[in-house]
Structure formats: C-alpha cells, structure tokens
Design a protein around this nucleic acid. Structure first.
Lengths: 205, 205
DNA sequence: CAGAGCCGGTAGACACTGTCTACGACAGGT
DNA sequence: ACCTGTCGTAGACAGTGTCTACCGGCTCTG
C-alpha cells in the first residue's frame, strides 16, 4: 500500500529535496525529521541508523538517474553508439545539475558499508546497460566490453567530478564538460558519424 | 623557527597518521587534539575552524604526493612519455595506498570553500607539471595541452576512485588498476615504445 | 463487547561533536 | 616589580546520532 510506510518515502523525498539546495552535510537525521514534521526518533522506525537513511536517499538518486537514462534512450536513435553518447552526456549533466545528490551517491562509506545498504547494487544496472551498449557498438573488439565500459565510466566519472568542483574550468579554461565527454567516447569507441554533443541542427529521426 | 608553532605541525602529523588507519570521518577536532596530548581548545590557536585543520592535513597529503612524484621522475627515464606513465601510475597507486588521505584531499567542501584554505592551489602545481609533460610528449597536437592533460587527469582520477571502492574489480573483474592507466595513456597519447605497466604481449609500435 | 497486543510515533537521556569565552600560567621587555 | 602578549586549559552551549522508556490508537481475539 502506498499509504502504508508513508513516512519512509516522505523522509527520503524530504532528504532528496533538501539536497537540491543544501550540501550533503546538511542532511542530519534530526533536520530531515524536522522538515518531515515528525520527532527525531521517528526515522528510526524505518532506518536503523543515519547511514541507512542516507543510503536510501542516495538510492532514490540512482533511481532518478536510471529513469532519466531510460527515457532519454527511448527517444534517442537506436544505434548503440549514439545511445552511449546520450547516456554519457546525461551522466555528466546529471552530476552537474544535482551536485549534492551526485556527491552523496558516490560517498565511499555508503558504497562499501557491507550489508543491504550498499549502493553498489543500485549503480550496477546502469553499468550493465553501458556494458551491453559497448558490446553492441563494437562487436569484435580486442578487449572485453566490461573493461571498455569500466574505462569509459571511470573517465566520465572523473570528468564529472573535476567539472563539479571547477577544476576543468580553472585548469583548462573549459566552459562546458560536453567536449570532454565527446573526446572520451571517440578515444574509446572511435568517432561517431552524428556528433550528438552540441545542439544538433539536424533533427534525429 | 621550527620549535615555534610546533603544535601546528604536530596536529597535522597526527591527523595524517590517523588517516593511515581510520576513515576521514574519524578526524574529529577533539580526537586529533587528544592524540596530540593537548586540550580540545588548543587547535583553535592555529586553525580557526575544524575545516581549516582538515584542509591543512589534506595539504600535507598533496605535499606528500608531490614529493613522491618528483623523486620518481628524477629516477625515471627522461623522455616525457614515460615520465607521464610513471606519474600516472604513481597517482593511482597513491590513491589506492592512502585511501583515506586521497578521499580527504578531494573533498568538495574543502576544495571549494573560498579563501586560503582552498585546496585548488595545492593540487595545481601537479596539474601544471602534467600539462608541461603532455606538451613535451606531443609537441604539435590538435587540442591544447591543457585540455589533453585535464582529460587524462579526469580519467586517472575516475579510475582511482572506482578502483578504490572496488567497482572495477566487481564490474570488470580487474585485479590491478594499472592496465586501465595504460589504456588511458595510449588512448590520449598513443602507445609508448617501452610499456612500463604490464608485460605487453604485443610490442606496440 | 472487553481486553490484549502490537504498530507507529513521542520524549527524554546520554555521549560526543564544533565553537565560543573566560581564565591561567609563563615568558620577555622596560 | 609590573605590564603585556602568547599559548594552552576548562567550562559552557547548541547540535548531533543512538538508545530506551513510554503512550495513544488500532486490530485481532476470546
């Protein structure tokens, strides 16, 4: 029932909402409970610890990203190379748009704390999707698709992080992370015939 | 005088030492003061706030990394391509060896908090060195050396992070981040005649 | 229908944190 | 001797995460 466990979802939503304006450090247990209109002991009924609540919030971030990716892939062209392109740009743009959420999603202590609150399984479907796309884009490559996909993901992730704290702007004078994304993809997959990075004057059909 | 401001250095050393075994979350102001044998108010004489102390500790991490890089480059071969290779491997290995320190060094709130405790200036010399090496390695390239160096740095950083929380092992079954580093460098700079990372089965030419 | 039990949330305590302020040695200079 | 500045101590305060006792309603059962 959606009405049941309503507070659980409300707490997660309040936390995600809070992340739109505040840094992850502002996500204290008591503050979330306060904004949800309950006492500070109420969250404990659903989350055994503070980290578990943060983990659930981060999980909702992964769900959001996954939803954005699937809808973007549905409206995009079908060939895997451009699908990878849209997915890559979406990843970096998501990181730049939802900075605090992105930061929370990849916090080490949330990821590697064993048990069910680990976030690895939340990020793994996205990686699997990338692996499949990479395998489809270059069917007979030397290295395995997993290795290539992991390398692409690492490069994208590093670009997103460096972009987020302004190092790319400061060091390389870049005003947009998109060229870096395109450079990564061409380096690993070869050039794409339809470069999807810039607002393509040609409507994809 | 070195004897003067002795407590300042001691606090930083204690914090760095603590990071060898504990996570950055264990670096509380009072715990550091406790281990340094002073009261909890003493650090305030040298660091106006907790973040300032953490910043100084992270700075010492950058100093450590820089020292390792310079000594490694001195004993390495002279041509810039292999110097970049040693520097890249050292970066990822440093991240894997000093996980907590690496995590602290790239914390967003430490980096972008304006003022003198920003860490950007601590990481910038290393980036400048990489830019120079890249410029020397490929004197007449299409893109600027800054852009290439930033792309390489982003890829290396992403690899270091993904490796650190085990995603590369789990997703791609890798047991060593070194092949990823080599793949990054060959993708951006072309193959190196003497591959220093793995015993390459096929000599690249 | 009455009572028992549980479910979901409240309220208070505890140890701990970062920050602030007042205070206390203790040195050197005039 | 006295003042003055430095360096560190000690205590207070608000805020945090966790734990425990409690309690109002609800449902299920006899």
């Amino acid at each position: 029932m959606p009405a049941d466990d309503a507070l659980r979802d409300r707490l997660v939503r309040v936390g995600a909402e809070l992340l739109r304006t505040e840094s992850p450090g502002a996500l204290s247990l008591r503050e979330i409970a306060r904004r949800a209109g309950v006492s500070h002991g109420a969250p404990r009924r659903y989350f055994p610890t503070h980290l578990a609540l943060l983990s659930a919030i981060a999980r909702s971030g992964f769900a959001d990203l996954s939803a954005q990716v699937t809808t973007a892939l549905r409206t995009a062209a079908q060939d895997p190379r451009t699908q990878i392109t849209t997915m890559a740009h979406l990843y970096v743009r998501f990181a730049a748009t939802n900075r605090s959420m992105f930061e929370l999603m990849f916090r080490h202590d949330l990821l590697q704390s064993g048990g069910h609150l680990g976030l690895r399984d939340a990020s793994l479907p996205l990686f699997r999707l990338l692996v499949d796309l990479v395998a489809a884009a270059r069917p007979a490559a030397g290295t395995s698709a997993e290795i290539s996909a992991a390398a692409i993901w690492a490069a994208l992730h590093g670009t997103a992080e460096l972009w987020n704290w302004g190092s790319l702007t400061l060091a390389a004078g870049a005003t947009d992370p998109a060229p870096f994304v395109d450079a990564i993809l061409t380096a690993h997959l070869g050039p794409s015939e339809h470069n999807a990075a810039m607002p393509a004057p040609e409507g994809s059909r």
